[in-house]
Amino acid sequence: MHQPRKRDRRPARRGRPEPTQRQAFRLTAVDVDVVLVGYFSAKQKDFETLMASAATDLATRGARVVVQIVQRRGVSDGGVEKMGLAYSSRTLLSYGKVREVAQACDQANADAAIFVSSLTERQQRTLTEMLGCPAVSLSDILAAD
């Protein structure tokens, strides 16, 4: 015969919280110090031009780019097959590069880390926690104006 089923004493799972409205980071103050981070594949040869253009866009909005950091994918032998993919779906960058950005943000006392690539909400939350300052994509800043 069947044995009676034991009662599950684990707390009931709650539904997912409602997604919060994504707050756009605004460069409201003049002379805001930011770290500019770019993620590019090896196929993109004009990454220096894109970084310079992003720095100019930020300067016109009152930000001062104190450090520029670039992560390139596919430069090494192992990365050629995965050139178009992010190193990590959680952080976009490799773990070592995230540590480098966090150290640069800390040393420069940066107000934000601006990513040339667009970030998902999860990446934005994770990077904000890891870097100790807001992580924002450049497209969000340009769209806020």
Score class of each variant (00 low, 15 high):
Gln3Asp: 05
Gly15His: 05
Arg16His: 06
Pro17Leu: 10
Pro19Ile: 04
Thr20Tyr: 00
Gln21Val: 12
Gln21Asp: 04
Arg22Pro: 08
Thr28Ala: 14
Asp33Ile: 07
Leu36Val: 02
Leu36Ile: 01
Gly38Lys: 04
Tyr39Met: 11
Tyr39Thr: 03
Tyr39Glu: 01
Ala42Glu: 14
Phe47Thr: 02
Leu50Asp: 10
Ser53Gly: 11
Thr56Val: 04
Asp57Leu: 12
Asp57Gly: 04
Thr60Asn: 05
Ala63Glu: 13
Arg64Ile: 13
Val65Ala: 08
Val66Leu: 12
Val67Ile: 07
Ile69His: 14
Ile69Lys: 15
Gln71Tyr: 04
Arg72Asp: 07
Arg72Leu: 14
Gly74Trp: 11
Asp77Phe: 06
Lys82Cys: 03
Lys82Asp: 10
Met83Trp: 02
Ala86Tyr: 07
Tyr87Val: 00
Ser89Glu: 07
Leu92Asn: 01
Leu92Gln: 02
Leu93Trp: 04
Ser94Phe: 00
Tyr95Pro: 13
Tyr95Gly: 15
Gly96Thr: 10
Gly96Leu: 03
Gly96Cys: 04
Val101Tyr: 06
Val101Thr: 11
Ala102Thr: 04
Cys105Thr: 14
Cys105Met: 15
Cys105Ile: 14
Cys105Asp: 12
Gln107Phe: 10
Ala108Ser: 15
Asn109Tyr: 02
Asp111Glu: 15
Ala112Asn: 09
Phe115Met: 09
Ser118Lys: 13
Thr120Asn: 03
Arg125Gln: 13
Arg125Cys: 03
Leu127His: 02
Thr128Lys: 06
Leu131Pro: 04
Gly132Pro: 08
Cys133Gly: 03
Pro134Gln: 07
Leu138Glu: 06
Ser139Tyr: 00
Ser139Gln: 08
Leu142Pro: 00
Ala143Pro: 00
Ala143Gly: 01
Ala144Lys: 03
